[in-house]
């Protein structure tokens, strides 16, 4: 198992290199001269040729392309993503706190999504076709269809303004988590619990369930067996949901004034703050690779066959 993990992790390294190179190239393909972008970003009212030349020199944009890339990559490995074009502060000092804020939101939401999807999925599968199953599925259908922007506004209006229970926005207390986490989770739970439910249903008809019952295993034990076998698909989905949420919270962050990665990235894209965009893309890409690897490892832990095939 240990060897498997090491192999998996080593295999992801070349992928990360490719990603970093692509990130760097894509930004450099942008038709705008970074030096000009810097000056514009600093809201310099009048941009002259001299200023542009001066800025190019200061940013090291005169160096050959590959040198620029290796400089950037080596710095990135030490978490030094350069300085923001707009504020001149280090990218890490800007993206670090924003990343942490979004990560908190993502982890709390993911926990809610995983727990509720499994609980609902298992319950619906065991009660297939009953009123409980049908009403939960109906509700989820409805909730998934609601645009999160609208749902967020309605929830703020009802829970914060009408009932005066929760803060409308910000992240100043524990209570601030409740509304954004709910809005994020609702959409995902509605989809994911169906996955759990359908793979549970598939497993229910497998021979081993029949044998289990025949040999007198308790229903509780059988359910656990089924759950474990049906989780394989779900584990991949759950693991991938973390980077997906990480990268898609911008609407929620705007409505709830959450000082996170989504807002920072949109702000940076609009002001063409390339170093932040680069760091953002890189962080998300690493998150995808990392969680993909984690899901492989968990699945391997659940299913020894996967390890042997490797």
């Amino acid at each position: 198992m240990g060897l498997y993990m090491v192999k998996k992790l080593i295999l992801s390294i070349p992928l990360l290199f490719v990603i970093s190179f692509l990130t760097f190239i894509l930004i450099n393909l942008s038709p705008m001269d970074p030096a000009e972008v810097v000056l514009r970003a600093q809201e310099v009212p009048q941009i002259t040729e001299e200023l542009i030349a001066q800025t190019r020199e200061a940013l090291g944009l005169n160096k050959p392309f590959l040198n620029q890339y290796t400089d950037w990559l080596l710095a990135c490995l030490q978490l030094d993503f350069g300085d923001s074009y707009v504020t001149g502060e280090s990218v890490w000092s800007l993206i670090g706190p924003a990343f942490l804020n979004t990560l908190k939101l993502t982890l709390v939401s993911s926990a809610a999504i995983i727990v509720l999807s499994i609980v609902l999925g298992v319950n619906c599968a065991l009660r297939e076709g009953t009123l409980v199953d049908q009403s939960i599925r109906g509700m989820s259908f409805l909730l998934t269809a609601l645009p999160s922007y609208w749902l967020a506004s309605i929830m703020i209006w009802y829970f914060s303004v009408k009932l005066d229970l929760l803060p409308t926005s910000g992240m100043e207390s524990y209570a601030s988590y409740i509304l954004p986490v709910t809005v994020i989770s609702v959409g995902y739970i509605g989809i994911y619990f169906r996955n759990v439910r359908s793979s549970m249903l598939n497993q229910l008809n497998e021979d081993y369930v029949l044998y289990g019952r025949a040999s007198g295993l308790s229903e509780k034990k059988i359910t656990l067996h089924i759950l474990r076998n049906s989780l394989q698909v779900a584990v991949s989905i759950f693991c991938m949901s973390i980077p997906i949420i990480l990268g898609s919270t911008v609407v929620i962050e705007n409505v709830f004034a959450w000082p996170g990665l989504g807002r920072l990235s949109v702000k940076s894209i609009l002001s063409r703050d390339f170093p932040i965009i680069q760091a953002y893309v890189l962080i998300l890409a690493v998150a995808f690779v990392l969680f993909n690897t984690v899901s492989d490892i968990i699945n391997a832990a659940l299913n020894p066959k996967l390890r042997k095939e490797f």
Binding site: W157, V255, A257, P259
Partner: peptide, 17 residues
């Protein structure tokens, strides 16, 4: 206080935040 969405601003005004 930073409130990027106007809808939230109105609600926050109503609540007194």
């Amino acid at each position: 206080k930073v409130l990027p969405a106007g809808e939230t601003t109105l609600l926050a005004l109503q609540k007194g935040e």
